[in-house]
Amino acid sequence: MDKSILKNPFFKANPITVLVLGVCSALAVTVQLKGACVMALSVTVVTGFSSMLVSSIRNTIPNRVRIIIQLVIVALFVILIDQFLKAYAYDVSKQLSVYIGLIITNCIIMGRIEAFALGNKPFPSLVDGLANGMGYGMVLVVIAFIRELFGSGTLFGLQIIPQSWYIANGGFYENNGLIILPPMALIIVGCIIWAQRAVQKELQEEQ
């Protein structure tokens, strides 16, 4: 199996920073690290397993209804995850609310199924799905780290910035409320893309 299937989604073909897929949810669920991690894990599981399932039945799918068939399979995994979160991680499920259901519409998943799983064997499809999910999740975690640390002064809900620094306690520091809002997440995504393109020159378009 080609190693690039596993490697590419992290840097060279990262779903968010290079393919610019799934940006909507990247803005919505990155206020806190916990939510971002659960979202990253959920998307990884959904892309991985739906890619594998679609790939294993790819020769039997009637071509005319293939998008709908893929959608049913993706929806199956998303609803399963939603049900499990409601049962075992109710707080997170409430916090992520509609975004779990909206994984169905995440372009990364349908994109990988259409572009990869339909033409490859189940195992490479599973790896491709998982790797893309993780590439997406990695960016999510980076954004959430910045947003939670500077927006709320916490990481995973634990206070990182000392309480005595805050202006309210006689210090000099104040949380940046702007970072909590989605527009700032978009600016952070932009900065990450900028940094990545500065390092990986081959991503830059010809002048």
Binding site: T60, I61, P62, N63, V65, I68, I69, V72
Partner: peptide
């Protein structure tokens, strides 16, 4: 199998949806 025939499409989708 002709995977593009109407009958096949209908049976295939029905079975899949019932399973899911």
């Amino acid at each position: 199998l002709n995977t593009n025939s109407n009958i096949y499409t209908i049976i295939y989708t029905t079975i899949l949806v019932v399973l899911v």
